[in-house]
Design a protein around this nucleic acid. Sequence first.
DNA 1: GTCCATTAGTACGAACAAATT
DNA 2: TAATTTGTTCGTACTAATGGA
Lengths: 467, 467
Amino acid sequence: MIHINIDRKTSCSLSRQIYDALKEAILFGTIQPGEKLPSTRELAKYLNVARNVVIECYEQLAAEGYVYSKNGAGTYACDGVRFHPLEKDTAAKGGSNEKYSPQYEVSFRTGIPDLAEIPIKRWAQIYQRIALDIKPSQLDYQDPFGDYRLRTQLSLYLNRARGAQTAPKNILITNGAAQSFHLLCGLIAQNEYALVENPLSFGILHTLCANSVNMEPIYMDEQGMVTAALPDKPPKLIFTTPSHQFPTGVILPAGRRIEMIKYARRQNAYIVEDDYDSEFRFDGSPIQSMQFLDPQRVIYVGTFSKTLMPALRLGYMVVPDELCEKMREAKYVADLHSPILEQLVLGDFLERGLFERHIRKMRKLYLKKRNALVGSLRQSFGERVKISGAEAGLHFIAAFEGVHFHEGLMKKIEENGVQISAVSQHCLSEKTKSQYDQGLIFGYGNTTMEDIDRGVKILSRVIKGER
Amino acid sequence: MIHINIDRKTSCSLSRQIYDALKEAILFGTIQPGEKLPSTRELAKYLNVARNVVIECYEQLAAEGYVYSKNGAGTYACDGVRFHPLEKDTAAKGGSNEKYSPQYEVSFRTGIPDLAEIPIKRWAQIYQRIALDIKPSQLDYQDPFGDYRLRTQLSLYLNRARGAQTAPKNILITNGAAQSFHLLCGLIAQNEYALVENPLSFGILHTLCANSVNMEPIYMDEQGMVTAALPDKPPKLIFTTPSHQFPTGVILPAGRRIEMIKYARRQNAYIVEDDYDSEFRFDGSPIQSMQFLDPQRVIYVGTFSKTLMPALRLGYMVVPDELCEKMREAKYVADLHSPILEQLVLGDFLERGLFERHIRKMRKLYLKKRNALVGSLRQSFGERVKISGAEAGLHFIAAFEGVHFHEGLMKKIEENGVQISAVSQHCLSEKTKSQYDQGLIFGYGNTTMEDIDRGVKILSRVIKGER
DNA sequence: GTCCATTAGTACGAACAAATT
DNA sequence: TAATTTGTTCGTACTAATGGA
């Protein structure tokens, strides 16, 4: 008779304990294939448990194919279930969320909004209200394009605030701009290619690389992408950030926009307008979207990561009619559709004007920070620093006269506790790298006034030590 | 002097109205490239508005590159901004979420939980609590694998309830099983292929097709995938539903599981265990996961769409150590990471045992429904219906003696207001199609007792009319 | 917040039918 | 035929947790 240790004090049920022991015995070969197991009565008596307990565990073993029972004949171990001793997973080592983002004393990371100012309370209130009077059918699978009410509100907002030409049917809700780019990559076949700005954001670069999309960088001047340099070979997509080029901050002027659209039409290409932070323009209204000029050639990509919060993972694309079906399929295959509840909350947020109010509030705050940072840099570096692209967004470029941000210097800055990236790190060619190697990208969205002060002081010390 | 209609009653600002009019004039060519615009003083006087209004709008036009101003010389339209008349989007036609799911009188759609029983209130309460004491840093971008606390809880749950061998570091939070499959497809190169069960679920079929993955179907018998028929050519992935095969409901016995794992080891393939509804087993505990037998060869795919709600779009994968980095990269490229707030809520939900309680509650409810449906079918069809795979999950198969569910009959059923699918629709070959053509798949998760009654009555009428 | 009735989970015991040796 | 074994269905008891007043 097989011996089984039974512990009546543990929270684990008796039948589970016997089940585990028997299964292990069968897998290890202690109980041979075809061997008869003790009868339920016998084992129950031997172990001093109720027969029902043994029956329950024999049934489970039978259901999983370890044993088979024959009425009147007994229970036998199945063939072919001998197996190697299980490798128990060695001690689950500790971990946490914190580990993901290394800690710096001051961070000028780009693209992060002020996390302390996120209207999370208001957001949660609306979430609760929405959840309380939701219809069960809304908790079912939904349209891959997303919630219709949100798309309606978004369409109104985009028409109003960004001068875009959209209808709800063209708006595809995604899990942030990263997913939008990922889905768009699906449009590009292996032998086709995409045009990108140079320098460009890591986000697009990384997405395109990982999806093994061929890229052709386009030279930029102080007006943005040089449309005269557009190649003859027809691209499939043209990735651009016309309202506030990343990282240079340049605004693509109307003339070049039109040229680019004409080019796209000629080459039968689509323009991907990455409008990642245009909501925050400090003088005048936001620059109008490029999509406005030709809704059938321009795919507009927006995100709520900067305006609300990165953790939300909500963004959207305005898709030309011709691409709607393809994009619907792509989104469906990727993850069916984006989560619904927070879409409903966002729709409400927009409808009540809370979103635009929040933007206005944040614009003021970011303006303050920008001015403080510019002031701080001026104070430390005087005329030896040249700032550009600061009219909008959550970052700008500062070029330091006579300083070259090579790898060693960047490492030194990091070692001194400042997180910041150099423009040259975003360049695709050696030529552009050296063209931009005096520039740092200052993201100030999630900095405090103290951060700004301290960060510039540290930078000043390190840079001046270098010179 | 250009004429501009100004409406002081509208909510649109004066400068916006002037801006729009001027921009249109430039784009249409009413104002020629290089033409001098009226001076700010002149235009302000003419339109009877303050000069600042005109200045603001000239600045905006300049920022966007439509005009340029020279100190002392005036403002001129830029070159190259003439453009076609804008095609105004024709009337945004109406739409709504409802349109997405066509209405049936009774739906036996598979894989839908009881939407009316979702603990949405409790969920919303926790959401609010979580949101109120969240740290700002948690609203930042996070680890692609997901929230660590949720992964810890999930790992405990899986070990406890599914007998899986996991550590938090191996758990990747995804936007539902569909995304898990999508990410896994990235492991398969163009010249490689995947093994699938036949018949199989639309979900996997569709994902694999759309990602242009080559598939090889494996024959099944009453015990599930016939492991003796595994091909010599090494596959990359083997997709399987061992706990409750979709759609047949068969449980893959231990012997075959072990054979399959040995095969996978020999061929250096990975097994994808799609555990889509095993939580709901009606007699005994759920069938133990296959992942338990070899955590380094089996990728376990789970979802909360059936246990909580489809609209949530949350699922997970248990990834072998060797694949962690690849999967991290794949998830990062797809959408950086899954939304955080609802992950936190889910983690709390699990930690408090609310999740398991909910499962227990639902298991009872589903058992009731299953029994009612089986009873109803028995009553209508007596011994002429054979039911299989009903021991677990939210669906089972009913085979009707002497009835063949060809396209015409399926259409007739649909026309009579019943949504249901035939087993043969899930088959990949003609041979299997005819083998299974007497079976319907009854999903009863989101049906009411009345639905069940009514649905069976309608089916009975249609099927008997056919015979 | 507290108390109380209810419910769910686990374990036990007993009885009987059906199949097997 | 008798003894043994599984399959099935009761009822009871104890405990912990839940939900409502």
